[in-house]
Write a protein that binds this DNA or RNA. Sequence first.
DNA 1: CTGGATCCCTCACGATACTG
DNA 2: CAGTATCGTGAGGGATCCAG
Lengths: 219, 219
Amino acid sequence: MARDYGQFCGLAHALDVVGGRWSLLIVRDLLTGPKRFKDLEGGLPGIPTNVLSARLKELEESGVVRRQLLPRPAKGVGYELTDYGRELEEPLVKLGLWGAKSLGPAEEGEPISVDGLALALRGAFRPDAASGLTRTYELVLDRRPLTISVEDGRLSITAEASAADASLATTPALLVELVFGPLRVEDAIAAGQLGVTGSKTEARRFFQIFRLSPEPAGG
Amino acid sequence: MARDYGQFCGLAHALDVVGGRWSLLIVRDLLTGPKRFKDLEGGLPGIPTNVLSARLKELEESGVVRRQLLPRPAKGVGYELTDYGRELEEPLVKLGLWGAKSLGPAEEGEPISVDGLALALRGAFRPDAASGLTRTYELVLDRRPLTISVEDGRLSITAEASAADASLATTPALLVELVFGPLRVEDAIAAGQLGVTGSKTEARRFFQIFRLSPEPAGG
DNA sequence: CTGGATCCCTCACGATACTG
DNA sequence: CAGTATCGTGAGGGATCCAG
């Protein structure tokens, strides 16, 4: 998307920067922390490598993404958001919530993005239910760990393993049902679809903190 | 943008719906009320008519835009946002604020979108400065009127003339300076760049209500 | 094996002319 | 006024190839 809109407007300029195809999904995936080229490619089924490469270059030039050599023991190249890039979190959460309202059930074989779920969790986060609370949860989705830290109403989600107050293991599809659908924690545990390490009370609390609020009006 | 991202994610689906080129700018322009094909074309310099036509059709099919015959005396076709489309306001305001942070000064000859300014005003709105206040302002930018209603912390902006508590007439460029830049109301009035009908006190209050807040952290 | 670059093909988009 | 028709271009899709 080399061609820009050529009008003086914050939104138009935002779209000049991150309006290109795949750009915002790249940012979405980087919101959970630095990633390699290959990780990004894996999280964006269908993206051509040349497009991913071009997007990363554009985003780097516009100060959204920073390219860096990974420290030991990883070794290689990593991409991470700049502070400015991280400020896209709020717009993306809002836009994701908007899109989720007209998002039907997952189709057969349609991949469920783990980073998309991380974004959705940010949208489903209820600061009031978490106020005064400090907890770290580990959420393992298809072997991919997310560390979810809640600190008195503030939230951070990163794609890494960690020692946590409770660890929940399930599939993306099940998590969708638990957070956005009618499935109850007890039933999922009983059915062996949700593995809990740590107290079941903490597991229950997790799904109180992360639950889609009812709409203020319609939806 | 017929091809969709093919992954289960609210954000990805939002981009499937409104991620096509020009789509979000069309929505932006419709946030100030129904518009005709020609009005949209005028507010989006450079958009090909076939693309505008195609986008409107897509947006209509996905329930974002509604096409309707205009009532007398206008006669013709009009486009307006559905309730679902109007829910894009918050994401767009956030995204516009993000883009505005890296938006330099307007270039020579670069058109300043009036609907973009309306979006920016929503972003610059300070509910705390407007709490308990009920006012209607008319803002005339290059002969194009905006009606800005503040009702105890709630805001609505439409592209229409109205009887207001105060009427401000200036240019888009000057408004940018007044709301986002250092230009002071008195100086603009004194220089004859800002025409005020009604009390100057109300004019001053307007620019207290609409002013870009300092960043919470960095920026 | 990671981290891309290169190639070709297609189609979405841009520009313009034209019609109901 | 409100679009449709036509046509050229270049960004994006897909596969392969290359360097460290």
